[in-house]
C-alpha cells in the first residue's frame, strides 16, 4: 500500500516536473522579449527542477544520495534566480528595451531598434546577429504573437 502511494507520488512529481519544464520551454520559445523570457527561465524551471528532484528523492528513500538531492535543489533555488537576474541586468545595462503590449514589433526588430537608437554602445561585442535580412530563419515572426 505504502509502496503504491509512493509510486503514485513519484509519478505525480515527474509529471509536474515535466509540466513546469514544458511551461518554461514554451515560455522561452514564445514570449516576446528577453525580460519576459527570463521570468520563465528562472521560475517555472526552478519549480520543474524542484518537482523532478523531489521525485528522485522520493524514489531513493532515506539514503545519503537523498541528501544530495536536497542539496541539488538548494543550489538550484539559489543560483537560478541569480542567473536570471544577471541576464536581465546585462540586457538592461545594454539598453535593450522591454517589450510592451502595445508594441507589435518582433523581438528581433525590438533588439535592432534598441541598437539603432544608440542604446547599445559602440565598440560593443554584443551579438549583432540582426544584420542579415535575406538569411534570417523563416520562423522569424514566430515569437511575435
Amino acid at each position: 500500500m505504502i509502496e503504491a502511494i509512493r509510486t503514485a507520488l513519484i509519478v505525480g512529481c515527474v509529471l509536474a516536473a515535466l509540466f513546469f519544464t514544458l511551461v518554461s520551454t514554451a515560455g522561452v520559445l514564445r514570449l516576446p522579449d528577453i525580460y519576459t523570457r527570463a521570468h520563465t527561465a528562472s521560475q517555472a524551471d526552478t519549480l520543474g527542477a524542484g518537482f523532478g528532484l523531489a521525485a528522485v528523492a522520493l524514489s531513493l528513500g532515506w539514503e545519503t544520495a537523498t541528501v544530495k538531492t536536497v542539496l541539488l535543489l538548494f543550489f538550484i533555488f539559489i543560483t537560478n534566480p541569480t542567473a536570471a537576474h544577471a541576464i536581465s541586468r546585462a540586457a538592461d545595462e545594454q539598453g535593450i528595451e522591454p517589450w510592451r503590449p502595445d508594441d507589435d514589433r518582433s523581438d528581433l526588430r525590438l533588439y535592432r531598434d534598441s541598437q539603432e537608437n544608440g542604446h547599445i554602445a559602440d565598440g560593443g561585442i554584443s551579438a549583432d546577429t540582426a544584420g542579415d535580412e535575406e538569411r534570417q530563419p523563416p520562423e522569424d515572426g514566430g515569437t511575435n504573437r
Binding site: T25, I34, A41, I96, A127
Partner: peptide, 17 residues
C-alpha cells in the same frame, strides 16, 4: 536564434537546469 546574446545565455541556463 537569439537574437541577443542574453537570449542565448538564458536558453543555455535553462538547458543547464
Amino acid at each position: 536564434k537569439g537574437p541577443s546574446t542574453q537570449d542565448r545565455v538564458l536558453a543555455v541556463n535553462v538547458l543547464g537546469t
